[in-house]
Structures are given as structure tokens and as C-alpha cells.
């Protein structure tokens, strides 16, 4: 693979992304909401005479599981589809760069944009935490950040796969928003609604979580923040008894890695088989 060309594409995509309104708007909103969530968490703790990130953690995890993945999946969906509609894709594909190299460059560049957004939001939270509550809980926050970065990679890869398959940019963006809604809310609601009726059980619930990259990311963040599986309630007790906390973390990591690999494969096949 022509690595300098891959990095050139990555730099180009990052440059285009950070100059777009989607990234700037999301980064700004995400940072403001992260700061508010951190301040509210610290306030509720100080009212109780305690310190730490505890109650704020839930809010930050939910933010990390909603904002960056939405941005990542939309950026990914916009990338190849926009390049195709603008006839930039043929211009790229006659360069000394393979199609797999081009897809890799696009993903790396867009992941950089998502990571910047996560860095702004959680960076501001970390500074607040360190200055008000000390540095003891910053490690937990950094673990959440690490998990959020991983979820960012998955979301961009899924978005790029959608772009490679969709007929138009509008279709790609619509599909990406629909899929994000499905992962972020709809699957949870369906599982909550039917779990008892169909006797899904904790094993079925675990499979449902592994099949949903955002839910897998959420579980990973909870576990990475220092909590053990028991924090997840009765379901956590099941995990603790069957695979343990480390096993659960490995399972959700494997889920995220599989989603990323499959998405990149679909993106490569899409860009290879379709005319640019």
C-alpha cells in the first residue's frame, strides 16, 4: 500500500471535515454539553459533601454514545457519496493509490475529525474535573474517552460502508441517520419491550447488546470507567457469573472490532464493484 498517499488522503479528508459545519457544530455542542454534565455532576456531589466523577459519569457516557457516533456515521456516509456525486472519486481513483488505500485514507481522516470532537468535549471535562475535584477521577474519565474513541472508529467505518453502497448522497445520509437512531434508541426500546414477552433472558440480551455497536460501546465505557459488571444490575450479575468483568469487556471489544472490520470490507467491496 502506498502509505504516503494514504496519509495524504487522510489529511485531505480531515481538512475538509474540520472546515465543514457538521464537525464544527457538533464539536461545539458536544463540548458545551460535556462541560454542563460535568458541572452538574460535581455540583450534586458537593451538595452531598463528596467529590468525584460518579453521577456525572452516566451522563458523559450517554453523551459519548450519542454525539460522536452520530457525527462519525454521518461524516462517513457523506464522504464517498459526496466524492462520487462531485466526480471527485474518478479523479482520486486514477491516482497512484489503490481503492483499499483510498478507503483507508478516508476512514483515518474522518476518525481524526471524530477524535478531535471527542478530545474537545472530554478534554474540557477533564480540565474541570482536575481543577475542581482533583485528579483521582480523571483516570476513569480517560478510560471512557478511550472507549469513546473506539466507538468513533466503528461509527465512521459504518458510515463509509453506507456511502459505498448508497445510490446517492442524500440516500446515504438518510440511511446513516436511520441506522444511528436504530442503534442509539430503537433496538433498546424493542429489547426492553419484547425481552419478557419472548423470554429473551440475559443470554439473549447479551447477544442483542453485542449486535449493537453503540450498546457494546456503552457497556465498554461503563466497565472501562472502573465499575465491575455488577454495576449493570441483574444483567451484570449474569455477566459476572458467566464471563466475568474482563470477559464481558473482551466480548464487547470483539463486537466493536467485528463491526469495524465488516464495515470496511463492505466499503471496499462497494467501491471496487461500483463505477465511480
Amino acid at each position: 500500500m502506498n502509505l504516503p498517499a494514504v496519509f495524504a488522503v487522510a489529511g485531505w479528508e480531515l481538512r475538509l471535515a474540520v472546515r465543514g459545519r457538521l464537525v464544527m457544530g457538533t464539536a461545539l455542542t458536544f463540548t458545551v454539553v460535556c462541560v454542563l454534565a460535568t458541572l452538574l455532576g460535581l455540583r450534586s456531589l458537593s451538595d452531598l459533601g463528596l467529590a468525584g466523577v460518579g453521577p456525572g459519569t452516566g451522563a458523559l457516557i450517554n453523551l459519548a454514545i450519542l454525539f460522536p457516533p452520530l457525527m462519525g456515521i454521518m461524516l462517513g456516509a457523506n464522504s464517498l457519496s459526496s466524492a462520487r456525486e462531485r466526480s471527485l472519486l474518478p479523479l482520486m481513483l486514477v491516482q497512484p493509490l489503490s481503492r483499499v488505500g483510498y478507503v483507508c485514507g478516508v476512514v483515518v481522516g474522518l476518525v481524526g475529525a471524530v477524535w478531535l470532537t471527542i478530545g474537545f468535549g472530554f478534554g474540557a471535562s477533564a480540565i474541570l474535573l482536575a481543577s475542581i475535584a482533583g485528579t483521582a477521577d480523571v483516570a476513569g474519565l480517560l478510560a471512557i474517552v478511550g472507549s469513546a474513541l473506539g466507538v468513533g472508529v466503528v461509527s465512521v467505518a459504518i458510515g463509509v460502508a453506507i456511502a459505498a453502497l448508497a445510490g446517492s448522497r442524500i440516500q446515504a445520509l438518510g440511511l446513516s441517520m436511520g441506522l444511528w437512531f436504530l442503534f442509539a434508541f430503537a433496538i433498546d426500546l424493542v429489547l426492553a419491550g419484547v425481552a419478557a414477552a419472548v423470554h429473551l433472558g440475559p443470554a439473549g440480551l447479551f447477544v442483542g447488546i453485542l449486535a449493537n455497536p453503540l450498546e457494546a460501546g456503552r457497556i465498554l465505557m461503563v466497565l472501562a470507567s472502573g465499575a465491575d459488571a455488577l454495576t449493570l444490575g441483574p444483567f451484570g450479575t449474569y455477566l459476572d457469573n458467566t464471563v466475568g468483568t474482563a470477559g464481558a469487556a473482551l466480548a464487547v471489544l470483539a463486537s466493536l472490532a467485528t463491526w469495524t472490520a465488516l464495515s470496511l470490507l463492505v466499503a471496499y467491496m462497494g467501491i471496487s464493484r461500483r463505477e465511480p
Binding site: 462531485r86 466526480s87 474518478p90 489503490s98
Partner: peptide
Amino acid sequence: GRGLIGYLPQLVALP
């Protein structure tokens, strides 16, 4: 063969 060709498409919208 890649990179041996310079290509100007009929329509191209640069970013």
C-alpha cells in the same frame, strides 16, 4: 497502471 494517467472528467466539482 495506476498513476500513469492524468484525467480531467467532463464535470468535476472541487471542494
